[in-house]
């Protein structure tokens, strides 16, 4: 074990004395920022797409919108997220002449990507709500959209919360690919510490621990949210 404690010492030295912790904090911040904002964007996009896809389809406009949404979902589910990141960063940005920092690009791409997945989750959630709820809303004179937003979506969200939590956890873990476009995440931070101390065992171990703790905390948060949303159920 003497060997291991030497490794720990080397890690601590790189972590504390060589400013490794600052890098780790930056990486952690980016990881959380990308995952949380990506999820928020994803939920917004996903909800809009899901609503469009469950619209009654005997008019032209819903059909056209539905086609566009299907294409979008197909596109973002059909390619790996690394490819999307690279294409967005190295192809789209230069073509459009835009300058956006790599973290912001990652937020956008993760948002667009999870939007495609969440749209399907949300759609199944909306379909799981009894059609009578929509009818009851319409019968008292509320519009389709009001009923959707006030009655159907809240119930749908309650039903899909566990799946949505899954998506968030997946998102947290997937952020480890943002180093492809040069953003600092946990991997880059610990890789740097490893390079500085010529020792990779402890840094990667700590990195894994941080991911696990993050995911456990999130699961706990979801559980608490679920409990408060289940107030209207008789299952406790």
């Amino acid at each position: 074990m003497g060997d291991f404690s030497k490794k720990v010492d080397a890690f601590l030295d790189a972590f504390i004395n060589q400013n490794g912790y600052a890098k780790v904090l930056e990486g952690l911040q980016n990881t959380l920022l990308i995952a949380v904002l990506g999820l928020v964007i994803g939920i917004l996009i996903g909800t809009v797409i899901a609503i469009v896809r469950v619209l009654p389809k005997y008019k032209v406009l819903p059909r056209v919108l539905n086609g566009i949404c299907s294409f979008y979902v197909g596109l973002f589910r059909g390619t790996p997220i690394v490819v999307q990141l690279l294409v967005f960063y190295y192809v789209m940005l230069p073509l459009l002449g835009l300058r956006i920092s790599s973290v912001n690009v990652a937020i956008i791409v993760f948002g667009l990507n999870s939007g495609a997945y969440i749209s399907e989750i949300m759609r199944s959630g909306i379909l799981s709500v009894d059609h009578g709820q929509m009818e009851a809303g319409r019968a008292v004179g509320l519009s389709y959209w009001t009923t959707m937003l006030k009655i159907v979506i809240p119930q749908a969200v309650k039903n899909i919360l566990p799946t949505l939590g899954n998506e968030f956890i997946a998102l947290i873990k997937e952020t480890s690919v943002v180093s492809f476009v040069g953003a600092t995440d946990l991997y880059i931070a610990f890789n740097m510490i490893g390079s500085n101390s010529y020792e990779f065992m402890v840094p990667y171990l700590v990195m894994a621990l941080i991911y696990i703790v993050l995911v456990l905390l999130i699961s706990l948060g979801i559980k608490i949210m679920e409990r408060s949303l289940r107030k209207s159920d008789r299952r406790h």
Binding site: Q133, E135, A136, V140, G141, L142, K150, I151
Partner: peptide
């Protein structure tokens, strides 16, 4: 026009995510 035409359903269709009084007040 539906505001002036109430409807009562076979399966009640109360809004599950609202309390009883919210159900009545909502519209």
């Amino acid at each position: 026009h539906r505001r002036h035409m109430g409807m009562v359903f076979q399966h009640f269709n109360l809004f599950n995510n609202k309390t009883v009084i919210q159900n009545i007040m909502l519209a």
